[in-house]
């Protein structure tokens, strides 16, 4: 009996000793977590999208408590910025809501198909094959790589074209990094008009490849009362900072490359 009794006593004695030491140490050297961090973390959306520039919501919460800007979270938007300002005792800073927009209208009805693609269903893989099966090498390939990375279920792919459901879009920008064609752009949510085309070919070529391409005809540029439209490399671009949503450009566009977006109100 004693052969087994002694080890049992030693081991349980040691266990008890270390237990007591640890519980004493945990009380004695306790570091109180900043309550603010926990409150802020509770307010943040928790999407861990990284749009604020920090790795996830935890780190942004710490950064806010440490004095970082309160208006960096595009997902929470203005509401969140106001709440954070209250907690931190700062003044509310303006927080413009941005959303992503696919600058392409190249559905399979509008573009023609160069070849039958039967490889991996991924935009980047298809783009390696002669720029994708669509006749427009600048346009959307509709394989849905952006849809796969969207944390908010805000992207739909229909008929070979990705479309962003604006009321769901949080503006985190993950899809922008994923798109191999670089046709998803961030625009202020209040801006209603965009040139939904990214084709930089000359007008005749662009029109041949896609029925709704911007052909750089300059009509919208001349029509715009605010001079908000410029032609960059044979494709019109609306400067959302100058645009007043008058909608005159959409009336003169001969191809229908300019679209009105009213999803976000």
């Amino acid at each position: 009996m004693t052969e087994i009794g002694i080890p049992v006593i030693i081991v349980s004695g040691l266990g008890l000793l270390f237990g007591l030491l640890l519980s004493y140490a945990s009380k004695k050297f306790e570091v109180k977590p900043d309550e603010k961090i926990e409150i802020i973390r509770g307010l943040l959306p928790g999407a861990n999208c990284g749009a604020c520039g920090f790795t996830g919501c935890d780190l942004y919460a710490e950064a806010v408590a440490g004095g970082a800007g309160i208006n960096l979270c595009p997902v929470g938007g203005m509401d969140l910025a106001e709440k954070l300002a209250e907690i931190m005792g700062k003044e509310t800073a303006a927080c413009e809501k941005y959303i992503a927009r696919v600058m392409c209208k190249g559905t399979w009805d509008n573009v023609s198909i160069k070849y039958d693609y039967d490889g991996i269903v991924d935009c980047r893989a298809a783009a390696q094959m002669a720029g994708g099966p669509s006749s427009c090498i600048y346009g959307c390939e509709g394989m849905g790589s952006c849809k796969k990375v969207c944390l908010f279920g805000a992207i739909e792919v229909e008929n070979g074209l990705a479309r962003i459901i604006e009321e769901k879009c949080a503006g985190c920008g993950k899809c922008i990094a994923e798109c191999p064609k670089g046709i998803i752009k961030m625009v202020p949510a209040r801006s209603e008009y965009s040139v939904s085309c990214s084709n930089h070919e000359k007008g005749a070529v662009a029109r041949k490849n896609c029925k709704v391409a911007c052909i750089a005809c300059q009509r919208c540029v001349k029509e715009c009362p605010e001079n908000a439209i410029t032609i960059v490399d044979y494709c019109a671009v609306i400067d959302p900072g100058k645009c007043v949503n008058c909608g005159k450009c959409i009336l003169v566009c001969p191809t229908g490359a300019i679209s009105k977006y009213t999803g976000y109100q």
Binding site: I120, D122, R124, A125, Q128
Partner: peptide, 13 residues
């Protein structure tokens, strides 16, 4: 399986 294509994609990444 499209192995070479996926490897090419991986190389690119």
């Amino acid at each position: 399986r499209h192995l070479v294509q996926s490897i090419r994609l991986g190389k690119d990444a």
